[in-house]
Design a binder for these strands. Structure first.
Ligand SMILES: [Zn+2]
Ligand SMILES: [Zn+2]
Ligand SMILES: [Zn+2]
Ligand SMILES: [Zn+2]
Lengths: 155, 155
DNA sequence: ATAAACCTTGGAGTTAAATCTAGGGTCAAG
DNA sequence: CTTGACCCTAGATTTAACTCCAAGGTTTAT
């Protein structure tokens, strides 16, 4: 059982954010004290952690609401609905991972193309790579850059 | 050489967005016509594609600006600076990929826990999984759910 | 040579997701 | 029994990233 400030501190967010999530239907406390204080259960905390992870991973609050709405009236959902919804989010996540991997490999190529030494980067090939979008799909041309650092093709 | 509308169409964004990026220092056209029309080169287009990919992958415009600022005055950067900047972004991307993989595996477990059939999901274990954050770090308990679908642990 | 389809600037409006402010209750410690 | 740390609501403000609008100049195609 947490009061709003305790849960907020636990999850490193502001109490305002919790009230905001409540107003927007993402997470309501399981109960209130007589004085009207919000009381969150461990279950509520778990739900919050789910929300925060989904958010960290790039989903909007609306998308998260969609995922969580399953619970609103469970009895009106068939397993097919539930699984469909989860699987469609799953597809989005997989696609995003692919994008990220492509970008990661771009950056990796940029990094590989640079020796990281103390000389001026004025004509460092990393910049050409950025400018010409070389190495964003394909690896940079294997070779030697302006200061003899070996450029290694990767992936 | 593209006029603003052509480049916008090519990259499936609005002309307004291109003017917005220019105002915020992310991408200026290489030249203008006598009448003041913006003229973008193929190089500008490549830079724009880089911006759009970085954005798609979750970087803010400020972060992208930081990455692109390298070009502003190349001569004041050492290779060490350049590589450091790129490598730090690289780290962020790798971390984000890890988060996404964890979330993907959560969703996968949720999906595995559900048969996807036409019965009511009223007491489908997928919901418990969501509520209790089961399966978000560890796989669900290997076993059989309410309608005998086999839950396969995965990772 | 005129209408449609572009382009220009400057500034206002929108949306998501908080974050803050004002004006008050509540509660444990001293 | 008061002080300081919490909590409440309702509503205003902020920030990022567009998106739209008005008033006008330019190009192109008939
Ligand atoms: Zn270098
Ligand atoms: Zn170097
Ligand atoms: Zn099910
Ligand atoms: Zn089922």
């Amino acid at each position: 059982m947490y009061k709003i400030g305790e849960l907020a501190q636990l999850c490193e967010i502001k109490t305002d954010t919790l009230r905001f999530y409540e107003k927007h239907g993402l997470l309501a406390p399981s109960s209130r004290t007589d004085a009207g204080y919000r009381i969150y259960t461990e279950n509520d905390a778990a739900r919050l952690r789910f929300i925060l992870r989904a958010k960290a991973v790039g989903f909007t609050l609306n998308e998260i609401t969609e995922l969580l709405s399953i619970e609103l009236d469970k009895s009106n959902w068939a397993c097919a609905d539930v699984k469909g919804l989860v699987d469609s989010k799953l597809e989005q996540v997989v696609a995003r991972i692919a994008e990220l991997n492509a970008f990661r490999s771009s950056l990796q190529n940029l990094s590989n193309a640079c020796c990281g030494g103390p000389e001026s980067a004025e004509h460092c090939s990393i910049l050409d790579a950025l400018e010409t979008e070389q190495g964003l799909e394909k690896p940079l041309i294997k070779g030697v850059n302006h200061h003899n650092a070996i450029v290694k093709a990767e992936r």
